[in-house]
Design a protein around this nucleic acid. Sequence first.
RNA 1: UGGCCUAUGGUGUAACUGGCAACACAUUGGUUUUUGGUACCAAAGAGUCUAGGUUCGAUCCCUAGUGGGCCAACCA
Length: 669
Amino acid sequence: MSEETKSLNFIEHIIEEDLANGLSKDKLRFRFPPEPNGYLHIGHTKAIGISFGLGERYQAPVNLRFDDTNPAKEEQEYVDAIKRDIEWLGYKWANEFYSSDYFHTLYNWAVQLIKDGKAYIDSQSSEAMSEQKGTPTQPGVNGPYRNRSVEENLYLFEGMKRGEFDEGTHILRAKIDMQHPNMLMRDPIMYRILKKEHHRTGDEWCIYPMYDWTHGESDYIEQISHSLCSLEFKPHRELYDWFKDNVYGYAAQELPMPPKQREFARLNLSYTIMSKRKLLKLVQNNIVSGWDDPRMPTISGLRRRGYTPNSIRHFIERVGVAKRENVIDVSLLEFCIREDLNKIAPRVMAVLDPVKLVITNYPEDKEEWLDAENNQEDESAGFRKVPFSKELYIERADFKEEASNKFFRLKLGSEVRLKNAYIIKGESVVKDNNGHITEIHCTYSTDTEKKVKGTLHWVSVKHAIKAEVREYDRLFIDEAPDAHPEKDFMEFINPNSLKTIEAFVEPSLLDVTIGDQFQFQRLGYFNVDDDTTSEHLVFNKTVGLRDSWAKQKPKAQQNNNENKPQQQQQKRPAIEVIKQLGKKYTNQPEAKQEKSKAEILKLAETVSYDDLQPLFNTAAKKVGTRIATLITLSVLLKNGQERNEDINTFIEKALDDKNDLLVAEAKIL
RNA sequence: UGGCCUAUGGUGUAACUGGCAACACAUUGGUUUUUGGUACCAAAGAGUCUAGGUUCGAUCCCUAGUGGGCCAACCA
């Protein structure tokens, strides 16, 4: 198990430290706590990978706990989908739990808190309460019901539970501190009245506990050692701990271990969105065909698209775990799926954009069944037969009447190999009235030992089977569709994310089952879609092959999204940029220095003396920063800044320096 | 007019927790190849946001600044 010391992420460091400090290894216990209000997506796989991965690493149990405290949003359908997805990823949970299992315990503890004067019933409107709550920059004030007697609180809480009050009339709040700098600590709500049927408890309850109250205590009840969640819950930790500390006294005997919450940065993928709410909108507005549309970043979408559990797990490993905001490039995901499929997907031939190829010296009625290797990466995959005849389909893009010798494919007068078959030579073309090529004529030679530069895939016209191929592009045209405060993410939907193609495939594919995966040679990886019937084959393009030829040609279509870095630079104050340029200045070659200097001169125009003044104290050894300061100063002086004592001493000190560049700049002044 | 988190190549994560930065993806060359795929080799790319401090020495510790993120749902 323990190979060379693999580097640990910060969570593993924490666990190792806890272990070193005496936590027994058999006390380790984790959990994955989804709310059953939507489908799991690629972002969740990070959380799943972390907690279940830790479980595997330390051989500790991992609970699957559905955080089902809001009957208005949650459904059994989602529970089932979530379980299916986690299983599919290959993870095993120790226990399947529900927060709703703990409603009674939670209720009893809440009563205890009331008795201890740590919770009270508030009976105001939500507007009134939110007003008293203050803002992040302003403290809140106490509400009029804050000091109700224990008896009254108890009486009302019981009434709430019995259904004697309407929704919105009373709530239970923890009594903490309305002036607390953390808004979550300003008497957070613990229970609200919700007269809704719950997918598990039915109509047993009409009050439901809130997240903060439920989640932490559920961890505690399950004796979770490390409760891991994403960064936006960091401010909740203080409340998590408050509840935990206060409840601990009620149950320390049976439940000795208080859990520990730690937070990591969630996964973001470029050109996609991760919010369940927004994904739901795509489904509801029929932008996609459903939660499992192959364009969706949901696990079910990825599965249908042809992603394998293996590839996703590798992806999550490579993405790493840390606490800073991150955006993962989709190319990493694509790399992971190619890596996996390359090893396991059988190769076949399919033509997506056909043009007819006639082999003029091949007998009219002849047909041959040639051997084709199923997968050169896997010897055990064996061979199959593919039919060859006089008329074939090849890709339109594989032919040009004439082209430079960087074009390895078929052109008139030169030779190319047909994969698994013969060598052919382009002879002539047949065109329609519009000059559109309808047929390519060629001759073949049986000497297959010949060295030729290109190899084409093909399908025999007579034997070809029709198939529908669905080719997908990213769902959004913007790198971060939901990161624009002014614009709705729906504005960035890519209208061309789905392309449906009538393709021809080799006859061996007549006999496939849903989910089968193939490499269409030279094109990419494809799988058999759920929509496939015995008469109608449907393939999804999972991902294309890497294509270093395609990279060479399209220079025309790279236009729009090259403005991110510039924006960032604009946002930084000029003086900050100058400092940075200065720091590197002395390490740069002369030409680059010139450029830096020009940039500093430009930026200096917008710098005020007050911004610059602190830099006069720069340590003597930081020559670059002092040079940048001098350059900036020269601009200020030119623009009418008067010389003063600070300026003069700074210049004098520079004149005294050993560094020639610095002295030179100082002399100018 | 606040609090908390965060800052390492284009991207993501490391750096035995103080000894001059590694791995993966992406990029660019090359070798092999009946997939312009795969595999293999190589190159380029950051001196760790800025300033000050502690130290013989800081990516790592302290302070401040700057940038980014989060926090005012009877959501989770």
